[in-house]
Nucleic acid binder design. Structure first.
Lengths: 174, 174
DNA sequence: TGATAATCGTTATGGATCATATCAAATTCA
DNA sequence: TGAATTTGATATGATCCATAACGATTATCA
């Protein structure tokens, strides 16, 4: 049983003495810096964790050359074939102008196609190509078995689920 | 007692029927898009939550015109007076070249000063000015009472602490 | 000691991400 | 029909993030 308990790691230790640094003392403490209130800031931890997780995501799917953003676009296309650019971009929080270049990239790699809609000739129906589908399938497998697997290992399934739930909560209603 | 339980909100509901979309049907589902596996991706939730929290941070200290990054720099200066640019930048994950302009901004607003070190005339000892100290103090008060207060309200103290601990864990050892 | 290497802050530069205004074509609406 | 709206697209600028290189200074060590 891999021990997973988040509630007693090493939080409240009364901040061991380090050596007081005098403001006028140049050679003050050559060691690590004091993080001060930063250690208690949720936003700070959130940002650092997000960077780490994205780094690992990139490494994990590096063979497929997919960024998290690109992966999410392909995923939405698979789950919502035929939607147009505005719809996909909006649900991902991407601004339409910025979505154009992104799609150009995916389309030039033949992972998806823009098809003029018959009902509204302004909009493009987006859909995966076969290549896009198999690429996405490989990405999904890598993500779940390796990337998310590592997260599960480090946090434990229960904590992982609780974490996801809290993050979703923040994302939706904060 | 404000009810805070993260373990039973609305997770595993068997995905209510929405209306199957045919790939060839243009007018398929005009409603919200299916997020698919995206809802279960920690990285995705992490990113969205981080954006929301940073937004709120900015709003909260908007009167002081401080970004999260600037706030963290001032905080490190207060907790480690006399450290040089490389040290502060490194502990925050900021690259030295990018730290220059950032410091220029803070120094031009007279929130901090660069002082040539007597022991090593290459480096600058960084320290807050009085204005920097009072600005930081105001920021801290706003952050803890309003920003973090809201987070505590939404998550509940216990969940908030667990969240912070898991995020710190990810930030350090993932 | 003196030559060489390393470090510090800095500049320049390029890539990626993000935001706004604007446009032509197509559609909707009054 | 004419005005307003929507869609994809272009242009553009701000903000980050990353790398290479430089002058000044300090450290290394032959």
């Amino acid at each position: 049983m891999t021990a997973h308990k988040v509630a007693q790691l090493d939080s409240p230790k009364p901040a061991r003495m380090v050596r007081e640094a005098s403001p006028l003392d140049d050679t003050a403490g050559a060691g690590a810096l004091k993080m001060g209130e930063l250690s208690g800031l949720l936003g700070y931890a959130l940002k650092r964790a997000q960077l780490k997780v994205f780094e690992d995501f990139l490494r994990t799917v590096s063979s497929l050359q997919l960024t998290p953003a690109q992966f999410s676009v392909l995923l939405l296309m698979e789950n919502n074939p035929g939607r147009n650019q505005t719809e996909i971009a909006n649900t991902l929080g991407i601004l339409r102008p910025n979505f154009v270049a992104m799609l150009d990239g995916l389309e030039s790699r033949e992972l998806c196609v823009r098809v003029r809609s018959a009902h509204d000739r302004r909009s493009h129906n987006l859909m995966l190509t076969d290549k896009g589908r198999t690429t996405l399938a490989r990405a999904k497998k890598l993500i779940t078995t390796k990337h998310e697997g590592r997260l599960n290992e480090l946090l434990g399934p229960a904590n992982r689920d609780a974490l996801l739930q809290m993050l979703s909560m923040l994302a939706e209603e904060f």
